[in-house]
Write a protein that binds this DNA or RNA. Structure first.
Length: 490
RNA sequence: CGGGGUGUAGCGUAGCCCGGUAUCGCGCCACAUUUGGGAUGUGGAGGUCGUAGGUUCGAAUCCUGCCACCCCGACCA
C-alpha cells in the first residue's frame, strides 16, 4: 500500500481515483471501462443492498430475475426508449467460437444469430414482454417486482463507480391498474431512496422532477434525487420513473377492469446503482481517505492492540474478548486487528483510509489505567475513555458520528445552493462557486439546451417542494412560475 | 468518433535529443533491532524496455506500421 493519497484541493479527480484504489474499494479491470469491485468495496455495496432490499420488501415488493439478453426486436418496440439507449448498447451477434486451424480462436461466422441480442442496458423491454403473459385481470395487479442485476452501457468515458461500462444495480418494475396508483408508486419509491441516502448514507438529497431533456427514455415523468459532491458538481443518485402506458402499449399488456373493459396497465420503474458508492465516497471523504457513516460501515469499530511482549498481548486479548462479546450482543460490527505483521501506526492509517468510523487502541498502559484510546474518523479526534461502559460509549458515539457526517454534508450542500436572477450572475456562480443554482427558467427544452451548450450546466431537477412564485427566465426573460436547480453534473 | 499525449519490474519513474544491454524511489523476500501515528539497518529477488518489422557490428534510444492506455471534446445512472 502506498503512503497516502492525492490531496482533494490539489486534483479532485486524482484524489477520487487514488482513494477508490488505495482504500481497496475497486480497480480498473482488463476489460475496457469495466471495474473489479474488491472485497472491501463489495462489502459496502452488500450493506447497501441489504438495507434497500429490506425497504423494498417492507413496501410490498418481491425479487425476481430476468434475462441478461434482450432480442433486438423487443428492444426497438418503444421508440423513445430505443433512441435513448441505442448508442450505448453492446450487441451479441454470434454464439460460438472455433479454432481456425492455425491455433487461433476466432468467431465462428456460421454461428450467426438469426436475431441479434442486446446486452440489457436496462430491462424494461424484456420485463414488459414477460408481464404481458402475467396480466389478464385487474385481480393480477399490481405487479411489484424488483431485480438485482448487472447492466451494460457502452459509455465512451468511464470512471470508477460513477460511470462504468458494466454496473450493478437494482431495478424495480411495477404494473398498476390506474394512473394514480402508478404515480403514487413512483413517488413512494423516490422517498425510499431519499430516506436511504439521508439516513443511511448521510448524503442529503434534493427530491425533484427531471425536465423533458433529462427524462428517462420512454418515461412520462422522471423523479430523481440529486446530491452535491465536495467539488461542487451534482450527482444523480437515484431515479424513479412514471412510465404511463408507454410500455404497456408497446408490448400490448392489457387487463380487464372491474367494469369489464380492456385497458392498458400503468407502469413505473426505479433504480439505484453502484454509483451510490461514488456518491458516498465523494460526499464525505477527506485527504486521509474514506469516511463511512456508521449505519453503512461493514466494520464500525476497529480494535488495535499495542504490545511489546506475548504476555502483554494475551492480557489485551482477554480484555478484547470480553469487549467483543458485548459488541455482538449490541449488534456493533467490529474488527480486532491483531495482525503481527504490521505496526500500530500503519494500522491506524490503513483503517482511516478505509473509513472505519471508530478506532480503539488498547495497550499495557490502558490495562493499568482501566482506559482505552478512542479515535473518531469523522472529526479525527482522539480521547482516552474508561473501559467501564465502553460498549455503550461506543454505541452513543456511533450515533453522534452518523449525525455529524450528515450535518456536515447538509451544511455544505445548503451553502452551495445559490439563487440568482440574471444570466451574468448565473455564469459567475457556476464559474467561481459551483453547486446548485436556483433560478427561473421559461420551461422550454430549447432554453435548457442553449444554457447547456454555453455553460455545461443542466437542470438537475425541478424540486418537488419548489415554491410557486412569479418570475422571469434568466436566459429569455419569459415568464416562469417556479425556480429550478441548475448545476454541472457527473 | 475528432484533437492532444504516454507506453521502461507490482506501482511511480530516469535514461531517448547525442545508439554500447537499464537508473532511482515505493512495494516485495530474509535476518536483526523495533512496536502509543504509515519503523530502521543490512542483504536479496524481480525487466520480452507495448508490439511487429527496418537501419546498424550493436537499438529502450533512430525509422515505419500496428496495438493499448490516459487527457480534452461529443455521449451518459
Amino acid at each position: 500500500m502506498g503512503k497516502g493519497i492525492t490531496s482533494r484541493s490539489e486534483d479532485y479527480s486524482q484524489w477520487y481515483n487514488d482513494l477508490v484504489i488505495k482504500a481497496d474499494l475497486a480497480e480498473n479491470s482488463a476489460v475496457r471501462g469495466c471495474m473489479v469491485i474488491k472485497p472491501y468495496g463489495y462489502g459496502i455495496w452488500e450493506r447497501m443492498q441489504a438495507i434497500l432490499d429490506k425497504r423494498f420488501k417492507e413496501t410490498g415488493h418481491t425479487n425476481a430475475y430476468f434475462p441478461l439478453f434482450i432480442p433486438k426486436s423487443f428492444f426497438s418496440k418503444e421508440a423513445a426508449h430505443v433512441e435513448g439507449f441505442a448508442t450505448e448498447c453492446a450487441v451479441v451477434t454470434h454464439y460460438r467460437l472455433k479454432n481456425d486451424g492455425e491455433g487461433n480462436i476466432v468467431v465462428d461466422e456460421e454461428a450467426k444469430l438469426e436475431e441479434e441480442l442486446i446486452v440489457r442496458p436496462t430491462s424494461e423491454t424484456i420485463i414488459w414482454n414477460t408481464y404481458k403473459g402475467w396480466v389478464e385481470s385487474y385481480r393480477d395487479l399490481p405487479i411489484l417486482v424488483n431485480q438485482w442485476a448487472n447492466v451494460v452501457r457502452w459509455e465512451m468515458r468511464t470512471r470508477l463507480f460513477l460511470r462504468t461500462a458494466e454496473f450493478l444495480w437494482q431495478e424495480g418494475h411495477t404494473a398498476h391498474a390506474t394512473r394514480d396508483e402508478a404515480v403514487e408508486e413512483a413517488e413512494r419509491m423516490l422517498e425510499v431512496y431519499a430516506e436511504f441516502a439521508e439516513k443511511i448514507l448521510a448524503v442529503p438529497v434534493i427530491r425533484g422532477r427531471k425536465t423533458e431533456n433529462e427524462r428517462f427514455a420512454g418515461a412520462l415523468d422522471t423523479y430523481c434525487i440529486e446530491a452535491l459532491m465536495q467539488d461542487g458538481k451534482a450527482l444523480q443518485a437515484g431515479t424513479s420513473h412514471f412510465l404511463g402506458q408507454n410500455f404497456a402499449k408497446a408490448f400490448d399488456v392489457k387487463f380487464t377492469s372491474k367494469e369489464g373493459k380492456q385497458e392498458h396497465v400503468w407502469a413505473t420503474s426505479w433504480g439505484v446503482s453502484t454509483r451510490l458508492m461514488g456518491a458516498l465516497i465523494m460526499a464525505h471523504s477527506d485527504d486521509q481517505g474514506l469516511v463511512l457513516p456508521p449505519k453503512l460501515a461493514p466494520i464500525q469499530v476497529v480494535i488495535v492492540p499495542i504490545y511489546k511482549t506475548d504476555e502483554e498481548k494475551s492480557r489485551i486479548d482477554n480484555f478484547v474478548d470480553a469487549l467483543i462479546a458485548e459488541f455482538k450482543q449490541m449488534d456493533i460490527s467490529f474488527k480486532y486487528d491483531d495482525r503481527d505483521t504490521q505496526r500500530p501506526g500503519f494500522k491506524f492509517a490503513e483503517w482511516e483510509l478505509k473509513g472505519v468510523p471508530l478506532r480503539i487502541a488498547v495497550g499495557a498502559r490502558d490495562l493499568q489505567n482501566g482506559t482505552v484510546e478512542l479515535a473518531r474518523r469523522d472529526t479525527q479526534s482522539k480521547e482516552t475513555v474508561a473501559q467501564e461502559g465502553l460498549a455503550v460509549t461506543i454505541q452513543n458515539t456511533l450515533a453522534l458520528i452518523q449525525e455529524n457526517i450528515y450535518q456536515k454534508a447538509l451544511q455544505f450542500r445548503d451553502a452551495h445552493i445559490t439563487a440568482v436572477d440574471s444570466y451574468e450572475a448565473f455564469k459567475e456562480v457556476l464559474e467561481n462557486k459551483g453547486g446548485f443554482i436556483a433560478c427561473h427558467w421559461d420551461g422550454t427544452a430549447e432554453t435548457e439546451k442553449r444554457v447547456k451548450e454555453e455553460t455545461k450546466a443542466t437542470i438537475r431537477c425541478i424540486p418537488l417542494d419548489a415554491k410557486q412564485e412569479k418570475g422571469v427566465c434568466i436566459f429569455t426573460g419569459k415568464p416562469s412560475s417556479q425556480k429550478v436547480l441548475f448545476a454541472k453534473a457527473y
